[in-house]
Design a protein around this nucleic acid. Structure first.
Lengths: 140, 140
DNA sequence: ATTTTTGCAAATCATTTGCATATAT
DNA sequence: ATATATGCAAATGATTTGCAAAAAT
């Protein structure tokens, strides 16, 4: 049985969630993924690798991991939902439209753009999402 | 029968789409909406006002209008899909998390943030989406 | 021992599709 | 006249739910 990625173990423990076998399995599947993927992709991985996990459990784990900040749920230009693994706290993702590879990017100056928009619009801005899509260096 | 909003009429004509009764009806429903709304919201409007339009037709009109740049499809923090009416060409939307009111905002300095990210990540960035959520002046 | 989590299958929800009919050009 | 668009009802696909059994603390 492959090892369960440490950050996931700690994140679960910190918030009093149980470290179950199915959650570990999902964590392993995630560890082998790079870039953006859908719930269906993960279900497919599990199937292909004969890792037994219930469909509902996968959805529940994705939701939990997202709450814990281990994943972020993004929306592709097509409108489909996808997930990306997160390392840092606040950041955004650039996703390759060809191979789905994704990298986290720092908030380079976005913060001031956001406050500028808040000022101009009169809104009190709580959240923002910046999603970027294009071609990664390899796919260019 | 209420008037069909002019920009919609011209947008359809320009691209050789037919100005049908159902599309006019959708256009009228849109005109009476402010802020972000879902396909279901619109279907609800039609129902409530006894405006007869098929469900499929509403979805098809929303897709068409989005292609024409009259609407933008956004994703709420909840992950639900929503639409907002667009005036300008390129812009982003701030959506009130309380009343769903939305306003378009200019690209204040975002362009340079995007190119900065492109440079740092090595990606060739084609598209980006910035969605902002918070409280509008009235809901604060 | 107790509480949380699982897995299944059924339910739900949004969106799409096929196709015969109606409508705009 | 002819191509396009509609409406229906059925299909699809993704995600969620209820609930009894299983596993983690």
């Amino acid at each position: 049985m492959p090892p369960t990625p440490a950050p996931i173990v700690t994140a679960l423990e910190n918030r009093g969630h149980r470290l179950t076998r199915p959650r570990r399995r999902v964590a392993e599947l995630l560890a082998d993924r790079s870039g953006a993927f859908s719930a269906a992709d993960l279900l497919g991985d599990a199937d292909r690798r004969h890792v037994p996990i219930g469909r509902a459990t996968v959805f529940r784990a994705l939701e939990l991991f997202t709450d814990l900040g281990l994943l972020e749920r993004i929306d592709l230009p097509s409108g489909d939902h996808a997930y990306v693994v997160c390392d840092a706290a606040h950041h955004h993702h650039v996703v390759c439209r060809n191979c789905a590879r994704s990298v986290e990017v720092a908030d380079s100056g976005l913060q001031s753009v956001v406050s500028e928009i808040g000022r101009r619009s009169g809104f009190q801005i709580d959240t923002h999402r910046l999603e970027l899509f294009g071609l990664c260096p390899d796919c260019r």
